[in-house]
Simulated scan of single mutants.
Amino acid sequence: MYTPHTHRAGAGAYARLGVETQAMSASPHQLISMLFDGAITAVGMARHHMAARNIVAKGQAISKAVGIVDNGLKAGLDAKAGGEAGAALVANLSGLYDYVVRRLLQANLHDDAGALDEVESLLQGLASAWREIGTADR
């Protein structure tokens, strides 16, 4: 029998399949862009759930953003690329990602929408710079 729940579950599975297919055919540069997009989307969802006072969903969205930043963006940094200048850039980005994770955790603990705004702004700036690098390589 068709129910709204099965429709949502089917739509979610279809969306996941689309993202998985996109990720499988993406270049490493595009994968990083996808990580930024996912983190920014998760922060937006956390803001929405925070405003709606949905504590569980807010925590899940923030956890997703933390996971993307820590296990995706930060873990993907390569300190050996680019020599000494590259190592310095990696160290700076690693520190910035640590700061973003701390701000996300503070936002979760204190229902701090301002911290979410700050994180979103930082991630958007980094994502924009990353995309500019991609267009310069073409």
Score class of each variant (00 low, 15 high):
residue 89 L to Y: 10
residue 87 A to D: 09
residue 2 Y to I: 07
residue 32 I to S: 09
residue 79 A to D: 13
residue 38 G to N: 02
residue 56 V to P: 06
residue 76 G to M: 12
residue 63 S to Y: 04
residue 39 A to T: 02
residue 4 P to M: 03
residue 31 L to I: 14
residue 95 G to N: 05
residue 35 L to S: 02
residue 71 N to S: 03
residue 26 A to N: 09
residue 135 T to V: 06
residue 70 D to N: 09
residue 28 P to T: 04
residue 19 V to I: 01
residue 119 V to I: 09
residue 77 L to A: 14
residue 135 T to H: 10
residue 22 Q to M: 09
residue 92 N to I: 08
residue 11 A to C: 06
residue 45 M to S: 15
residue 93 L to C: 12
residue 63 S to A: 12
residue 67 G to Q: 00
residue 125 G to F: 11
residue 80 K to N: 07
residue 105 L to M: 07
residue 41 T to L: 09
residue 101 V to D: 01
residue 84 E to D: 12
residue 39 A to K: 01
residue 93 L to Y: 08
residue 61 A to Q: 00
residue 5 H to T: 12
residue 72 G to S: 01
residue 24 M to L: 13
residue 105 L to Y: 05
residue 30 Q to W: 04
residue 115 A to S: 08
residue 65 A to W: 09
residue 54 N to D: 15
residue 135 T to F: 04
residue 108 N to Q: 08
residue 103 R to H: 01
residue 135 T to S: 12
residue 42 A to D: 08
residue 45 M to N: 09
residue 13 A to N: 11
residue 106 Q to C: 12
residue 17 L to F: 13
residue 64 K to V: 02
residue 90 V to A: 14
residue 82 G to P: 06
residue 70 D to R: 08
residue 128 S to W: 07
residue 136 A to H: 04
residue 24 M to A: 14
residue 85 A to E: 08
residue 46 A to I: 06
residue 31 L to S: 01
residue 13 A to Q: 13
residue 11 A to N: 13
residue 50 M to L: 14
residue 69 V to W: 02
residue 112 D to W: 06
residue 86 G to Y: 04
residue 90 V to S: 03
residue 13 A to S: 14
residue 112 D to H: 07
residue 132 E to Y: 05
residue 110 H to W: 10
residue 115 A to H: 09
residue 5 H to N: 15
residue 34 M to G: 05
residue 60 Q to M: 07
residue 32 I to L: 13
residue 51 A to G: 13
residue 20 E to W: 08
residue 16 R to I: 15
residue 60 Q to D: 04
residue 134 G to V: 01
residue 81 A to L: 03
residue 102 R to K: 00
residue 118 E to I: 07
residue 96 L to M: 15
residue 99 Y to D: 11
residue 28 P to H: 07
residue 57 A to P: 03
residue 127 A to N: 02
residue 79 A to S: 13
residue 121 S to P: 00
residue 105 L to W: 00
residue 108 N to W: 03
residue 20 E to S: 12
residue 21 T to E: 13
residue 59 G to S: 00
residue 69 V to H: 00
residue 92 N to G: 06
residue 66 V to E: 05
residue 103 R to F: 10
residue 35 L to M: 07
residue 115 A to Y: 00
residue 53 R to A: 15
residue 138 R to T: 05
residue 103 R to Y: 05
residue 23 A to F: 07
residue 1 M to D: 13
residue 12 G to L: 10
residue 134 G to M: 12
residue 12 G to T: 10
residue 105 L to K: 02
residue 59 G to T: 06
residue 109 L to K: 04
residue 75 A to N: 11
residue 118 E to F: 04
residue 37 D to C: 01
residue 38 G to V: 02
residue 18 G to R: 14
residue 113 A to E: 14
residue 110 H to G: 08
residue 54 N to R: 14
residue 107 A to Q: 02
residue 5 H to K: 12
residue 30 Q to E: 13
residue 59 G to L: 05
residue 117 D to K: 09
residue 109 L to G: 08
residue 13 A to M: 07
residue 14 Y to A: 15
residue 100 V to C: 03
residue 12 G to P: 04
residue 108 N to K: 06
residue 70 D to W: 02
residue 52 A to F: 11
residue 136 A to E: 12
residue 43 V to W: 02
